[in-house]
Computed example of a mutant assay.
Amino acid sequence: MHRITVIGGGLAGLTAAITAAEAGARVTVHEAHHSLGGRARTAGGPYRTNEGPHAFYAGGPHWTWLRRRDLIGPLAPLPPLEAARLRLHHRGALRRTPPFALLRLLRPRTGPAPVDTDFRTWATGIAGEEGARAAAAYTAVALFHHDPGSLSAAFVQERLRRATALPPEAHYPRGGWGAVIDRMAARAWNMGVRIETESRVDELPGDRPVVVATSLPAARRLLRDDTLAWPSGRTVLLDLAVRTRRGDPFAVSDLDAPGWIERFTAQDPSLAPAGEQLLQGQFPIGPGESRADGLARAAHLLDLGFRGWRERVTWRREAVADGRTGAVDPPGSSWRDRPAVDRGDGVYLAGDQVAAPGVLSEVSFNSAITAVSLILGRPALDLKRA
């Protein structure tokens, strides 16, 4: 009978706990916050926000894993009329269709992009400078990075294809991601997992094995290991509640500079009080930029897409997410080069910046599954069928 300690009660920690408990292990989860969820935590209301725009991508193995356990729950489908209200900011104006050059990068015959070349260079050779710039900016919805064109071409291409897939891969759990976390927590409890909230761990426990399912900076401090580092994004997060007005777009993607703002009540009206709309946006900022710079870009996009938004605001929240938006791979590197899951001496990492494949939260899921497979001494699970 394995006894496993999990530090962190977010998506990675709960995935590890459930997987281990299903295999018969005794599991204890320590969560520093008073509630579970990490970055997948949903505010209690009346505005049910996540930490930045959130969506489940249905093409990943975590979708299958959650489905089989009935943990996703009811979804909030985007009405076709709303889906048609995606607007693109290009050349200073809002448009309904992307530039033709961008579409060249989505053709099946384009083939896989190289790992050791930056996306801007590779994409320019196929779609020209304008198409490459627009495509790189569009991937901000799945990158939260101020300069996607500087990253590995293979890394950015995968996210571009996932974000533009038809039918769309993005799905929205009704009630926000917190509803999924609640179902995962209930399953863990029912399987005998001991969950301790407001339980901050400042020293690595002597009892092993232990899964450290925290952010990478927190893991670095806990393990006192300065090698636990990997590039991430820095982005301004803006949440707004505005009074409803017919004609507001579903989402606006900035193709001139990375940025995205989405009306989440378009698919799930329960996220805000009646008569109000919930907008969530993210605007990546570079090393020399400030929160004010990101907010200025957000205001410009809102001016273009959401007429009279300033007079309609009923609630506002803003923040900067620094190093909390998932791993990004520079040219010449892939997920295999990130900090390894197995740290030796019975210590394992799980989270969205470690050596596991996937897009956004899929990395957390895949790393958690890998960690438990290593602990139990079993072959790594087939993540495509998990």
Score class of each variant (00 low, 15 high):
50 N>C: 15
117 T>L: 14
263 R>W: 05
18 I>L: 08
318 E>M: 04
37 G>K: 00
172 Y>E: 01
21 A>Y: 00
300 H>R: 12
237 L>C: 09
225 D>Q: 15
340 A>R: 12
116 D>A: 15
109 R>N: 12
367 S>L: 04
321 A>E: 08
358 G>A: 11
375 I>V: 03
264 F>H: 10
125 G>S: 13
236 V>P: 00
120 R>F: 11
260 W>E: 02
268 D>P: 00
119 F>E: 00
20 A>E: 11
39 R>N: 06
381 L>C: 14
197 T>N: 02
105 L>W: 15
314 T>P: 03
180 V>M: 03
95 R>W: 10
329 D>Q: 13
111 G>S: 13
188 A>S: 13
140 A>I: 05
247 G>D: 10
275 G>S: 12
257 A>P: 00
215 S>T: 15
105 L>P: 12
139 T>V: 11
113 A>G: 12
93 A>C: 15
95 R>M: 09
188 A>W: 04
59 G>V: 01
85 R>I: 09
126 I>N: 09
252 V>K: 01
163 A>T: 04
68 R>M: 09
177 W>A: 03
238 L>S: 05
104 R>C: 08
348 Y>F: 12
21 A>V: 01
66 L>I: 05
101 A>T: 12
188 A>N: 10
292 A>T: 09
362 E>T: 13
326 G>M: 02
75 L>T: 11
208 R>Y: 07
59 G>M: 02
26 R>K: 13
353 Q>K: 11
109 R>C: 11
115 V>A: 12
147 D>S: 15
92 G>I: 07
212 V>G: 00
186 A>N: 10
338 R>Q: 07
385 R>Y: 09
293 D>T: 12
4 I>F: 10
385 R>W: 09
308 G>H: 14
299 A>Q: 13
84 A>R: 15
373 S>V: 13
257 A>Y: 03
103 L>D: 05
50 N>K: 06
141 V>N: 04
382 D>Q: 11
314 T>H: 04
185 A>K: 02
115 V>D: 13
357 P>D: 08
196 E>Y: 07
293 D>Q: 08
50 N>M: 14
238 L>E: 04
267 Q>E: 07
313 V>M: 10
363 V>K: 00
8 G>F: 00
362 E>A: 15
201 V>Y: 03
61 P>C: 14
113 A>K: 07
259 G>H: 03
16 A>L: 04
168 P>F: 14
65 W>S: 07
88 L>V: 02
241 A>G: 06
20 A>R: 08
39 R>Y: 06
206 G>F: 10
2 H>S: 14
355 A>M: 05
269 P>R: 09
66 L>Q: 01
294 G>M: 00
16 A>M: 05
169 E>T: 15
4 I>L: 15
182 D>G: 10
58 A>I: 07
367 S>P: 03
171 H>M: 13
366 N>V: 05
54 H>L: 06
98 P>L: 15
293 D>V: 11
342 D>N: 06
71 L>H: 04
200 R>D: 05
283 F>N: 01
242 V>A: 08
62 H>E: 14
11 L>H: 03
